[in-house]
Design a protein around this nucleic acid. Structure first.
Length: 320
DNA sequence: GGACGAATAT
DNA sequence: GATATTCGTC
C-alpha cells in the first residue's frame, strides 16, 4: 500500500521547521574559515576568519563567543569585513583578525615536545619550534606562550629532582602548590626528553636522533621501522612532513571543518571520573629510567571499552 | 625592526 | 587555569 498523506501531517511538519535565523548561524559555524576563503564567502561573520586552517569557532571550547549565533565583535572596526574583503588587502585580510584561543590538545602538545626535543632546550625558541612543528595556523605567539608554561613545568620538575624530596604539589610553601591540574595531565601526556631535566642538551642538532614527529597522515612508508638511525630526517624526511598538518587536525577537526568523533556515545557521568586520585610521583611523564608513562598516543580508540583508565583529555570540544 | 622572554591581561 | 597580549630587552 502506498503512504497515505494527511493534510495535518504537512502542517505540523511545516510548523516544526526551524526558522531561517536558527539555521543560518549553525551552518556558518560549520564552515571553516579555510573553506570560506576558498569559496570567496565574504560575509562570514565568524569570529575566526583566518586564512590558515584553524579550529572552527563555536566548537573548540566552551568560552568562544557565548552569545548564540554569529555575533560579530563590534569592537573590531578595523576588520572592515562587513563590506567584504575588498578593502586594501585582498590577499590575506584575515591575517590581522583575532584568532580564537588555541587549545593545546595532547596531540598538538606531543608535536611541540618533539620539536623541542629535536632542537634542544637551548635552541628551542618559539620561531624555530613553530617552523619545525609546521602546523598550519600555528603562530609564533602560540608557541611562545606554550613554551613559557612548558619551561615552568620543566623547571618545576628539575626542582624536584635535585631539590630534595619536596613534591611539587605537596609543598605548601611557594607558588608551586598549584600543580595537579590539567597542566600536569597535558604535559604528562607527552614524554619529556631525558636531557630536558639533566640540564644538558645535544651539542649540535639532535645526535640521539630523537623520534621525530608522528606524521599526521600515515604515509605507510619508512616510518614503520624507527629502530634505525634516522638522522637523515634532518634533511628531507623531516621537512617533508610539513604538508598537511593543519591546526584543525590537531583539534579534532578534519579538513572539512567537521568534528571527527568516531564514537561520542558515552554517558557524561562516566566521563566525570577524570581524577580518582593523584598518581604516584610528581608527574607521570617524568620518571627517570624506565618511564612508566603511556607512550602510546592518547588517540581515541586506544582506550578499550571497559578499560580502567580513560584519559578524557582528548578533544576538549565538548565539556569537561 | 624582529624575536625572545617575563609579566600582565583576558 | 589556560592562552593571549603587552612590554622591556637584546
Amino acid at each position: 500500500m502506498r503512504e497515505e498523506e494527511e493534510p495535518s501531517w504537512f502542517a505540523r511538519w511545516e510548523e516544526q521547521l526551524p526558522a531561517p535565523e536558527d539555521l543560518t548561524p549553525l551552518s556558518q559555524s560549520l564552515i571553516t574559515p579555510d573553506l570560506a576563503l576558498a569559496f570567496d564567502i565574504p560575509a562570514i561573520s565568524s569570529p575566526n576568519p583566518n586564512p590558515g586552517s584553524n579550529p572552527s569557532p563555536g566548537s573548540l571550547h566552551t568560552h568562544l563567543t557565548p552569545s548564540s549565533g554569529p555575533h560579530f565583535d563590534p569592537s573590531d572596526p578595523s576588520a572592515g569585513a562587513s563590506s567584504g574583503p575588498h578593502g586594501s588587502c585582498p590577499d590575506e585580510p584575515a591575517r590581522t583578525l583575532k584568532r580564537p584561543r588555541l587549545v593545546w590538545t595532547p596531540q598538538l602538545h606531543k608535536r611541540f615536545v618533539d620539536a623541542v626535543a629535536h632542537l634542544g632546550i637551548k635552541n628551542a625558541v618559539p620561531k624555530t619550534i613553530m617552523q619545525l612543528m609546521s602546523v598550519d595556523g600555528l603562530t609564533r605567539e602560540n608557541v611562545a606562550s606554550h613554551l613559557q608554561k612548558y619551561r615552568l613545568y620543566l623547571k618545576r620538575m628539575q626542582g624536584i629532582g635535585n631539590g630534595g624530596g619536596s613534591s611539587p604539589s605537596g609543598n605548601g610553601s611557594g607558588p608551586l602548590s598549584a600543580s595537579d591540574a590539567d597542566t600536569e595531565r597535558l604535559f604528562a601526556s607527552a614524554p619529556v626528553p631525558h636531557h630536558f631535566l639533566t640540564g644538558r642538551s645535544p651539542p649540535t642538532a639532535a645526535p640521539d636522533s630523537y623520534m621525530p614527529f608522528v606524521p599526521a597522515v600515515p604515509t605507510m612508508s619508512t616510518l614503520q621501522h624507527h629502530h634505525h638511525q634516522q638522522m637523515g630526517l634532518n634533511h628531507h624526511q623531516f621537512y617533508n612532513q610539513q604538508r598537511n598538518n593543519s591546526l584543525s587536525q590537531y583539534n579534532g577537526f578534519d579538513h572539512h571543518g567537521f568534528l571527527t568523533r568516531p564514537m561520542p556515545a558515552q554517558p557524561p557521568q562516566a566521563i566525570s571520573m577524570h581524577h580518582h586520585h593523584r598518581m604516584v610521583g610528581p608527574g607521570m611523564g617524568i620518571m627517570p629510567s624506565g618511564n612508566g608513562y603511556m607512550d602510546h598516543e592518547l588517540d581515541m580508540g586506544s582506550r578499550g571499552a571497559g578499560g580502567a583508565r580513560r584519559e578524557l583529555t582528548l578533544f576538549p570540544t565538548g565539556d569537561h
